[in-house]
């Protein structure tokens, strides 16, 4: 049999070879490139190291910080605040968004107002809130609940509106009561929307929370960043390490928690 460079067999041979070799994900390569760029700039002295500390120092600090109880408690505090805020928003929004989704008159009465409030800048509201509630964790939870409110509201409302009329007919024909219609039909229907809403609102309020901590001087990773960025010698390294921590936490939450939940609904969705 002649040697064939082209054709199906040759093609499969090439495929098999590449499959056996380890292939890193594309994003990892870009990340390494960016980090190499950073490292080379600070190493070359183009930007002095007190303005841009070399990457390896930042990473080292990050590892060090991750073992410091003081730093961990700050991160934990921030996470607790944002989780409380989002949960609070969920408890408040869910009944409202369900009602609004099913009653178009109520929708017409409320949604424009809610859109208006949602359009107000979060950070301006925040300073206003701080003057009313005062500084502290309560202000932090309140503002993260505020910014989590809107994504959850709009995604659930949309989800309820998109439930096909025939699903309601099925529930009626098989004589489901109000509670059963809610638990066996409406809630499962909107579950994918709920996930999207929670995912968005977590991102929103997580960002806002860091600002809150700085303005309202609440213990948390935001205050940690601002105090370190604004002071003494090794400050920048600490600040950058903390910023990286925030990024890592956001991505981990998104991928490990929300994406997994969303994937579960993809079996049927």
């Amino acid at each position: 049999m002649p040697f064939r460079l082209f054709g199906p067999r040759a093609f499969h041979r090439v495929c098999d070879k590449t499959r056996r070799r380890f292939r890193p994900p594309a994003w990892l390569l870009s990340l390494i490139a960016i980090f190499a760029f950073w490292e080379s700039i600070s190493a070359s002295g183009l930007i002095p190291s007190d303005q841009l500390p070399p990457l390896h120092e930042v990473l080292l600090t990050l590892v060090q910080l991750a073992g410091t109880p003081f730093f961990i408690s700050h991160v934990a505090q921030s996470l607790a605040n944002v989780t409380t805020g989002v949960s609070l928003a969920l408890v408040l929004v869910l009944p409202l968004a369900l009602l609004v989704g099913m009653r178009s008159q109520l929708d017409q009465a409320l949604t424009p107002i809610i859109m208006l409030v949602g359009a107000l800048p979060d950070l301006a509201i925040l300073t206003f809130l701080v003057t009313i509630i005062g500084r502290g964790n309560v202000a932090a939870v309140a503002i993260s609940a505020f910014s989590a409110f809107f994504p959850i509201y709009f995604t659930i409302r949309q989800g309820v509106k998109e439930i096909p009329a025939d699903y309601f007919h099925v529930a009626s024909v098989f004589r489901a009561g109000r509670a059963q219609t809610l638990t066996k039909m409406i809630l499962p229907s909107i579950f994918p929307n709920l996930m999207t809403g929670l995912r968005l609102s977590f991102e929103f309020s997580w960002n806002v929370l860091l600002a809150v901590e700085i303005i309202a001087s609440v213990a948390g990773i935001g205050t940690f960043i601002s105090t370190n960025l604004g002071s003494s010698t090794h400050s920048l390294t600490y600040g950058l390490a903390a910023i990286m921590t925030v990024g890592i936490i956001t991505i981990t939450m998104d991928r490990a928690f929300f994406e997994r939940l969303e994937n579960r609904t993809k079996r049927w969705h």
Binding site: Y167, V173, S189, W268, H269
Partner: peptide, 19 residues
């Protein structure tokens, strides 16, 4: 109101997709 002895089949099937 819907009766327990009257059942229905729908044009759109109306199966609940998460079940």
């Amino acid at each position: 109101a819907p009766h327990s002895k009257i059942s229905m089949v729908f044009q759109t099937f109306a199966l609940l997709p998460w079940r």
